[in-house]
Computed example of a mutant assay.
Amino acid sequence: MELDEAYANAAYIPGGDTYPARWAKAAASFREKTLCELDLPYGESARQKLDLFHPPRLAKGLVVFVHGGYWLMSDKSDWSHLAAGPLAQGWAVAMPSYDLCPAVRITDIGNQIAAAIAFAAGRVLGPIRLTGHSAGGQLVARMTARRSGARWQARVAKVVPISPLGDLAPLMLTSMNADLKLDTAEVLAESPIYLPKPQMPVTVWVGADERPAFLEQSRILARAWTCERIVAPDRHHFDVIEPLCDPDSALTAALLAP
């Protein structure tokens, strides 16, 4: 399709095909040595489960990380190690899985993420900070819009979409749309650029070495929301999230800053 290359990542990253196995190995190792509750159900389907990582003392609050994969692939279990930075700073971290397209629509996934946050918020007191990568960036950005009955929204203190998809319209021109099934109505409803400007602080984060399409996606979202945009030097779409492993990184600081 017309824009398939624009949104291809692995082919343009040296060793891109090796990252999934590396992520899975690092995540499994992290779970083995960390206080965590695994596979907590927040919904009815098999994939509506989350992992909750706990600091050794009473948590300062809750961080929720939502994984990417174009709403078509991946699982919470590949990203556990990214909880290390916030966890070392005293924050609990929730990582949900969710149903994937084409079994559900992107709209349905957004509703599942809201349910996951509500569940985790019921387990952890204090402020909530949301972050997500790529499609997960779209999902956490979508959480800034008011939801009826979502009492947890008043606790959201910061949102950091990482390499987010702020405008879903271009994806209608990719072969992925055979499974995403995006139409104009859903694009308008689910694209963060069309949402009201959030009432909480937002920092859009993107790697300087990402594909031009992702640099533009981050740019238009930051412009639409008049919010901070950080372009991380020497980072591509796969390693842009790695600083979440470091409690002292600029990315972790942006997420947790008062």
Rank of each mutant, 00 (worst) to 15 (best):
M1Y: 09
G207R: 01
G85W: 00
R105D: 08
S148H: 14
I220Q: 13
I109C: 04
M172P: 05
I241W: 08
V240L: 05
R146W: 11
R31D: 13
A154M: 04
W225L: 11
P233R: 08
A26M: 14
V124I: 15
G61C: 05
H67V: 01
P127N: 08
G69K: 01
R155T: 02
F214A: 07
Q217F: 08
W152N: 00
D183E: 12
P102N: 05
Y194E: 12
W79Y: 14
I13Q: 09
M1C: 13
W91T: 04
I193C: 02
A232Y: 03
Y70C: 03
L244A: 05
Y98G: 01
L40K: 08
A208Y: 00
L256R: 09
L38H: 04
Q89K: 15
P233H: 06
H54A: 11
D51H: 07
I113W: 01
A11N: 09
R235K: 15
P127M: 06
P164C: 09
T34A: 07
P243G: 06
E37N: 11
A83T: 05
T144I: 07
L125F: 08
P196Y: 00
P96Y: 09
L256E: 11
R155G: 00
P86F: 04
C245N: 14
R142L: 10
L221D: 09
L38F: 03
R223C: 00
N111V: 10
I230K: 00
G85D: 06
M176F: 15
F53W: 03
D51Y: 08
P201M: 02
S74W: 04
A157T: 05
A213Q: 10
I193P: 00
F65L: 12
G136Q: 07
A94D: 06
Q217H: 07
K158C: 12
Y7A: 00
E228A: 14
A11K: 15
A185S: 12
Q153S: 01
A114D: 11
D39G: 13
M200N: 01
A116M: 11
D108C: 00
P41Y: 05
A118N: 11
P212C: 03
V124H: 02
D167T: 02
D108N: 07
K33H: 12
G85S: 05
S148W: 10
P201V: 04
Y19S: 12
P201G: 05
A26K: 14
G68K: 05
G61V: 10
C36F: 03
V206N: 06
G110Y: 04
L82D: 00
V159N: 09
I117F: 01
D246C: 06
A150W: 03
D246T: 07
L125D: 15
R223H: 13
E5K: 12
A257T: 15
T203S: 13
R105Y: 03
A115K: 10
A154I: 03
S45W: 00
A103R: 15
W23M: 13
S191L: 05
L182F: 11
M73P: 01
Q153P: 04
I220D: 06
P247R: 15
A154F: 06
A118S: 13
I128F: 02
F65V: 07
D239R: 02
K197G: 11
T226I: 11
H54Y: 14
A145P: 03
L50C: 04
L125H: 14
M172S: 09
A121S: 12
S29F: 07
E5V: 09
P127L: 02
D39K: 11
W152C: 01
N111D: 15
L3Q: 03
A116E: 12
L82S: 03
